[in-house]
Structures are given as C-alpha cells and as structure tokens.
Design a protein around this nucleic acid. Structure first.
Lengths: 203, 203
DNA sequence: GTTTAGTTTAACCATTTGGCAAAATTAATA
DNA sequence: TATTAATTTTGCCAAATGGTTAAACTAAAC
C-alpha cells in the first residue's frame, strides 16, 4: 500500500525540530512537541525513548545545515571574488529558509560544547583544501594577508548576525517594519560579498 | 560601621547573573543560584519574589552592557577610521571581559523579543546622530555608500561571532588550543577594524 | 484467531518553583 | 541592661510542572 501521508516518525521529527529550533532543549516541552505533531506524549517515548534521544535525532541534521559548505566552492574553478559571492549568496539563502538555525545552534553550542565538537570531528570536515586555496591567493598578492580562520569567521559573522539580531534590527532600527527588514536582508546578499571582497583588496 | 562584606542582595544578584549568563533563563535553577550565593533557596524568594523578578533584576544591566556605545565615539572629533578602531577595540575588550554576554542576550532575545525591544526603546537610545555622521562621510565621498544599519550590523557581527562560536573555533579550528584562540581574538582587535576600514574605502 | 505494531489513557514520580511560619539575628527603646 | 520590635534566615512543605512508564485498547498482518 502507498503511504500517502507522512509516517508518524517523520511527523514527530518535524514537530520536534520546529519546537526545539524555537525554544531550545531547555525551553522545549514534550507536550508541546506532541501537540505540534497531533499525537500524545507517550507516543514520543514509544518512538524515541527520551527527550534527549529525540533531540539527538534532530540535532545532527540541523547542525550540518548550519555549516556553510566552503570547500566545494573554494576548490572550484572560478575567480576568487566569485567564490566569495557564491558562498555568501548560498549561505544567506539557507538562512532565509532557516532563520532560527543560528540561534538554535549557538544556544546548544553553549549547553553541550564537547558533544558538538565531537560531532564536527566525526563528520571528517577538513578545511585544509580551502585554507590552501586562500593562502595561494595571499601568496600571489591577489588579496591582503589573512588567515583562513579569520576570513571564514568574518564571513559567517557578517551573514548570521542579521538573523541572530533580528528582533533588534527589525523592532528597533526598522520600527517593526517587516518589509524593511526583509529588504535589508536581501541587500546583504550582495553587500556582504562586496564588503568582504573590498576588504581583501590590496590598495 | 563600615560594611566590609557584600550585602546579601548583592551576593544574590552576582550569583544570579553568573548562573543566568551561563545557563539562560530556562536552563537556570533557583537552587543553583542559591548554592552559588552560599545561601538558602528560600532567601532568594524573600529578596526577589520570583525567578522572573530575579531575572529582570539582572537582565537590564547585562543587556545595556551588550550594546556598544557608538554615538559617543561617532560624534567625537577624530578621523573616521579612528572611530572605527575605537569602537571595535572597546567592544572586543568588553567581550573579553564578558565572553558569555552575546550568547546570553541572543538566547533571551529569542525567548522574549517584545520585552527586550521595549527595554531598548525605554532607554531612549537614538542612532540618529551616528547615522548622520556616517551619511556625511558617504556624501563627502570618503567612504563607499552604505547605510548606518548595514555598517553597524557588520561591525557587531564581526566582533561577536568569534565569542559566540568559540567552541567551534577553539575546539575545531585550533584543536582545543586555548592560547591559540586567545591570540586569535587579540589579533582581531586590529584586524576587524582594518577589515572594515578597507571595505569602506573607495577604489 | 493469534500475534504484533501503533496508539491512547492514566498515572507515576522527580524536579522545581514558591509560600509560610518559626527561629535567629539585629536594631531600637525603655 | 532588659525588653521589644523589626529584619533576616531557615526548614519545611504545598503546588505545579514535566519527563517517563504501565496498562489497556485498536487495527492490521500472518
């Protein structure tokens, strides 16, 4: 038989993701997840023994989404400036679709840092190729001397802060004008890339 | 008579600040705060009727500390580049002394955004003078066209992300080498300012 | 018709917030 | 100094919250 509707497990995972993303582990309630999924609390435990296990089931995916995939773009055969534009553009697009992701990851990063470091290491992500790519640009005199770490920290910081600080930016700087905030984010897709490219340029 | 030791209220506030900063409202426990203060749990309720009230008592101060004081520097009579250096330098110094502050504020900003927007508005902070200052630089052709909002969002994002992302940067990029992380932050005091100044320069 | 997976109801129980009255301490007054 | 009043602190417990489990029920599969 064809399952036309989502399986219970999927429904739970989706509900859990929604609630955990919004409230964080400490703020989330099993009851709220059950309500969101349209089932009862006990069923959550039938599928995922505990709150912790349920959380783990959604966390890895969410966290992986959070990490920008730098390496792929960095080793591709396009000019350096285009690489920056591509990474920033894709990353901000992802953030537009998952605006709660940064706050969620940051919160959990503070709660269980070791667990998350272990997760990154497990994935085998390796910044070495991207690092060498950047250092070659530096050596060739194409960009100012800067370590890969500083560069990537700058890039991510510039991309995520508008999402992290949304309440302040939208509520205070834009007097709760949602459209103004959205326009602001859209502007940043090119503005941030240009900002970085300009900052890296040698005078 | 001279009170050589801190009053009970101060001790409680300090303990509360420490625990709330680390764990957030949802993660903090009254018992833990009492332990930290070396007093009885009931005494917390005697001084501050509820967890909410105790939280409010520490929040405003913490939040105000988080906001960089831009206006003061912006209207001062020094070259624009020096203003950027001053703001970034002071802000990173403050973050070095209060490394948990950004995550704390971000977490609570997500939990009760309205409350915090109201708080900012209450303080009467006004970005207008700083805004005009920046727009004059733009009009005079000293820097590229950029809105004050984009500029300040860039600046804050560049400053706070290394603190927010510390576990990843220190644990993953620097293989848990604390000294390397600290050196990295120190480098950023000048690097971030230079990065911004360079990015704003017209070619 | 028996077994099994999925689901619900109901309850349990640990944790945590918060209230209250008594005890202890400090300050004020006779 | 003794007494009284006010403040601070403690121990204890009520109430609520929230994660977890047990038991019962349903429906599908064999």
């Amino acid at each position: 038989m064809v399952e036309q509707e989502l399986s219970t497990e999927k429904v739970i995972l989706e509900a859990a993701k929604k609630v955990f993303l919004d409230k964080g582990f400490d703020g989330a309630r099993m009851q709220q997840i059950a309500d969101e999924a349209g089932i009862n609390k006990a069923l959550l435990h039938y599928y995922f023994r505990s709150k912790d296990k349920l959380f783990d089931a959604i966390f890895e995916g969410a966290f992986m989404q959070f990490l920008p995939n730098i390496s792929q773009v960095m080793v591709s055969d396009i000019p350096f400036a285009e690489k920056i534009r591509a990474i920033v553009g894709h990353y901000i697009d992802m953030l537009l679709e998952n605006p709660y992701l940064p706050v969620f990851v940051i919160r959990e990063l503070q709660r269980t840092p070791e667990k998350i470091i272990a997760l990154i290491k497990k994935t085998g992500i390796n910044p070495e190729s991207a690092n060498q790519m950047v250092q070659k640009e530096v050596a060739d005199g194409k960009i100012i001397p800067i370590s890969f770490t500083h560069l990537i920290v700058n890039l991510i910081g510039l991309c995520i802060f508008p999402f992290i600080g949304r309440p302040i930016i939208e509520g205070f700087m834009f007097n709760s004008d949602k459209d103004a905030y959205h326009k602001f984010i859209m502007e940043r897709k090119t503005l941030v890339a240009d900002f970085i490219i300009n900052a890296l340029q040698i005078k």
